[in-house]
Design a protein around this nucleic acid. Structure first.
Lengths: 148, 148
DNA sequence: GTAGTTGCAAAACCTTTGCACTAGG
DNA sequence: CCTAGTGCAAAGGTTTTGCAACTAC
């Protein structure tokens, strides 16, 4: 199941330790979530109670360097981590201003803008789009409030 | 010159203090830049040497709440602040992977994507796009290296 | 006059680092 | 074995907070 991640670690001469396996397992079991280092630490502690948070940070940093994991900031004063699906058209994120849910958006639509910039001399290798507003559930509640 | 910001403060029952004026002045004089709280603090200290960094943080937080200033994180472990131009189609940012320059991009091109999401029940109130790659200068150097 | 604001220092938070110990290859 | 990796605790960097003094209105 983790064969490919094991192989990436081995190919780069990194050891496949129980801690690294446990962190990869948590990330794999929570695809679609966007966890902080502390949340990952709490998950991993369930199976590896001895683990230290420094190991979590060091492992996440390694996985980011190996482009296995993507690290991003949602302006909360800490970082969130998720599996990197690998191609340059990484999915976008929608954040609900009301309930705080983070929803992944697969549609792209940025080729046109990137084309314009490349004509202007830029070389675009990646992008990261955040959309803010109300998710369908909160938007519905706003339009049809039960009380008041 | 700051009349409008004074008015926004007054309208919301906040006092117009010399510290707040100085911070707004620094932000106004550095449009197009993206300063950290500490950089703003160092600028403001030139005219108001007695100011404390806590005041800078509290003022920036206030200005963000009043939607005068936009706060964002470029994944450096700290936040950057800039005047909020106000409409929902806030400009995008390009970050050069080589020289680190941050360039503002005015083109939008996100209406199509937002339209799709709104059809799906979302209400989009803002967005934030980061583009990563090489700026024209670094891209040129990469293509025509002087040495080697 | 008084509630809002400031400056200072301490605290809170997230993240990194030094070091002795451990264990994967 | 031997070096990379770990856990712990301490340190580092940014941001927030408590509080007494101050000041805009």
């Amino acid at each position: 199941m983790f064969e490919s991640y094991h192989q990436i670690l081995k190919r780069n001469r990194y050891k496949v330790t129980p801690q690294r396996k446990a962190i990869l397992e948590v990330l794999d079991n929570t695809r679609g979530m966007h966890f902080t280092a502390e949340e990952i630490y709490n998950q991993v502690k369930k199976t590896n109670p001895q683990i230290g948070i420094a190991t979590v940070y060091r492992t996440l940093e390694l996985l980011v360097r190996l482009e296995i994991v993507y690290k991003s900031s949602f302006d909360e004063g800490r970082h969130r981590y998720e599996f990197y699906e690998g191609d340059r058209h990484f999915h976008h994120h929608f954040l609900c201003n009301k309930c705080g849910v983070i929803i992944e958006v697969e549609e792209d639509y940025l080729c046109q803008l990137e084309g314009v910039l490349e004509e202007r001399g830029f070389m675009i290798s990646n992008h990261n789009l955040r959309l803010y507003g109300l998710c369908p559930a909160c938007h519905r509640k706003e339009k049809h409030p039960e009380t008041r």
